[in-house]
Design a protein around this nucleic acid. Sequence first.
DNA 1: TCCATAGTTCAATATTCATTGAAATATGGA
DNA 2: TCCATATTTCAATGAATATTGAACTATGGA
Lengths: 114, 114
Amino acid sequence: MESAQSIKALSALAQEHRLAVFRLLVSQGPIGLPAGEIAKTIGISASAMSFHLAQLEHAGLVRSWRRQRRIYYAVEIDAVRRLLTFLTQDCCQGRPEICGDMGVLADVCGAEEE
Amino acid sequence: MESAQSIKALSALAQEHRLAVFRLLVSQGPIGLPAGEIAKTIGISASAMSFHLAQLEHAGLVRSWRRQRRIYYAVEIDAVRRLLTFLTQDCCQGRPEICGDMGVLADVCGAEEE
DNA sequence: TCCATAGTTCAATATTCATTGAAATATGGA
DNA sequence: TCCATATTTCAATGAATATTGAACTATGGA
């Protein structure tokens, strides 16, 4: 994932309500939830919800589809994985031995590299 | 990691120059780099660099220490791990079987859970 | 067709944020 | 002590963002 795309995704996540929506959708998985139900759960107006969902969708973090009158949203897991990978890429220049005394660093180096 | 702390961290990362600094420091590991060298590498003024490094530090994503005249910055890997965990927590409500056709979802569910 | 439901779009407002350059602070060497 | 280097702080400016409520669009049932 390139830098500009990652910034879009991080900006989308860096907001109280959108972060809550994102985590709700992560917990929901591919089944997703309709916009109205998300708004009710999070506790914001329909128009604010629409705005935030559009931000998340433009950032590529969620996708949407219509089923009858409802518009469902679900997390776009591939994009999430690309973002996490981008953030931890080249960790310690790929040399876990220089992570040395940091213990946990090796975990991240290992966990996120492709 | 709680929501407010995560938002601080995500806001800190959601900016072109800070994201570049973060990735540079991730690649550098615990050895870190002095502020001036980071500024030169990224290509921004010393005062802008100072501002951005403070943002990253207040967000808990980096730490700093002085050695002679230089102030070194290094990534705070524990905070990064907590952030990534927070983002992918409760993925599919912990039931990989409902991730079903999404393939990669299982990877993220597995990779980030504690 | 008429109506209710479900979402989106729009304009206005208030707030937050990045950048600049100048001034201030801190360290270490001569 | 004096000076150069390294970095931070500050005030001002311009740009981006969240929220609100009202208006608009789309869907499906009676």
